[in-house]
Design a protein around this nucleic acid. Structure first.
Length: 190
DNA sequence: CACTAGATGCTCT
DNA sequence: GAGCATCTAGTGA
């Protein structure tokens, strides 16, 4: 490791998010190089699931940093976040897109044979086989393992995808020029 | 290529 | 019931 990534995860989401670009998240077979993320700063952020304080479903985001927070989106898609901020402060970074660098065949099978493997948070979660059972697990020692990037990435930033509140906060970060970044879509109700 | 609408299940009002 | 940190399949240029 070039930097102590897990120590850095105790920082605020909007500062931690770009540090995850170029990092790798993997299970036993499939490995994904992260190319696009979004920051969600808990009670400071009206678009965050943790905005209204800790509850049954979002308690993980108020737990220790470096753990996984998984939520069900639109009843269909499991989306994966990395918890940040010190324990007791809610917030996290959503992994929005990546490049499958190992286990392509299994990832494609999980994606029902599609060639689009991890472009978008629901697809990324599906490629890694993420479910509710992965929520709250330490990303150093659990089924899913996070490793630091080899080098600091050159990135761009812009508004977050699909949110109707705080739609003008530039809290989406992606690796500049990477073909695996998902297309920007504004919230339909915004 | 752009754009639209529907599916889907859970949370909060 | 409304509203989602979404995706896919459909239409039309």
């Amino acid at each position: 490791m070039t930097v102590d990534l897990f120590a850095a995860l105790a920082g605020p989401a909007e500062e931690v998010a770009p540090l995850l670009l170029g990092a790798t998240i993997r299970d036993d077979v499939v490995a994904v190089r992260i190319v696009e993320v979004e920051a969600y700063a808990g009670q400071r952020d009206p678009a965050s699931h943790a905005f209204r304080g800790p509850g049954a479903k979002n308690a993980v985001m108020f737990g220790p940093p470096g753990h996984a927070y998984v939520y069900l989106s639109y009843g269909v898609h499991w989306c994966l976040n990395v918890v940040c901020h010190p324990e007791g402060v809610g917030g996290g970074v959503l992994l929005r897109a990546g490049e499958v660098v190992a286990g392509v065949e299994l990832a494609r099978a999980r994606r029902s044979g599609s060639d689009i493997l991890a472009r978008g948070p629901g697809r990324l979660g599906q490629a890694l086989g993420v479910t509710a059972a992965d929520s709250g697990v330490d990303l150093r020692s659990g089924r899913l393992q996070l490793s630091a990037p080899d080098a600091v990435a050159t990135f761009s930033r812009g508004p977050r995808v699909g949110v109707s509140k705080a739609a003008d906060w530039n809290w989406r970060f992606w690796i500049q020029g990477d073909p695996h970044v998902s297309p920007y879509r504004r919230s339909r109700r915004a």
